[in-house]
């Protein structure tokens, strides 16, 4: 009787200590789901979802505050992936959110006055310039978020759709019709 009690209590102590130790040692900072959702989002940081960037939107999704169909740059596929990750039904885009073709910003250098307002708006520092100096877009870093367009006082920024080139061209999905054989139709 006593031995059994002793054994059980020692066991409880050891396991409790182990659990307590691992709780401290392997503590996870923040919600790990946020990172996973953020990895799916396209990182344009455009704010079209109503949140100030991709990570805030990911946090909102993880906390159940935001829907998964608010990210136009992610496309239908982004919704599919989010639905898969969160185990919910995929749904069409919410009101006002529709995907657009990919584009990069373009500064009309004849009209740029060098006010640096777009520089401050760019979430990924993809605009090069300084006060009273002409600005230009680093096209390879531009995410196409359109955040630089509104602040420009002379409206010299426009979006240029990215054209497909030989290096980015993709093979098409094979499309063909199944033609029923004559025997099948005769039957």
């Amino acid at each position: 009787m006593l031995t059994a009690l002793l054994v059980m209590s020692i066991l409880a102590l050891v396991l409790g200590a182990g659990l307590g130790f691992s709780a401290l040692k392997f503590k996870v900072e923040g919600n790990p789901l946020v990172g996973k959702i953020d990895a799916i989002l396209p990182q344009t940081q455009c704010g079209q979802c109503g949140y100030p960037g991709c990570r805030p939107y990911a946090t909102a999704i993880a906390e159940g505050e935001a829907d998964i169909n608010m990210c136009p740059p992610g496309g239908e596929e982004g919704i599919q992936k989010l639905a898969e990750l969160l185990g919910v039904e995929a749904k069409p885009f919410g009101a006002g959110a529709a995907p657009k073709p990919k584009a990069v910003a373009f500064v009309d250098e004849n009209n740029c006055i060098g006010c640096t307002l777009c520089l401050q708006a760019c979430p990924v520092d993809a605009i090069l310039g300084a006060a009273k100096q002409m600005h230009t877009i680093i096209a390879s870093e531009c995410t196409g978020c359109e955040l630089c367009i509104a602040p420009c006082p002379v409206d010299c920024i426009s979006m240029e759709p990215i054209a497909e080139s030989v290096t980015t061209w993709k093979w098409q999905y094979p499309v063909y019709a199944f033609i029923p054989s004559t025997e099948a139709t005769r039957r």
Partner: peptide, 30 residues
């Protein structure tokens, strides 16, 4: 044709993923 289609889709996705990762890095650094 199916394999070529799948390969080029996977490559395109990888390109997008790299671009997104760079954008994330640049945004976080900013």
């Amino acid at each position: 044709q199916y394999y070529r289609y799948a390969k080029s889709e996977i490559w395109a996705r990888e390109r997008d993923k790299t671009a997104a990762d760079t954008a994330r890095q640049r945004h976080e650094y900013r």
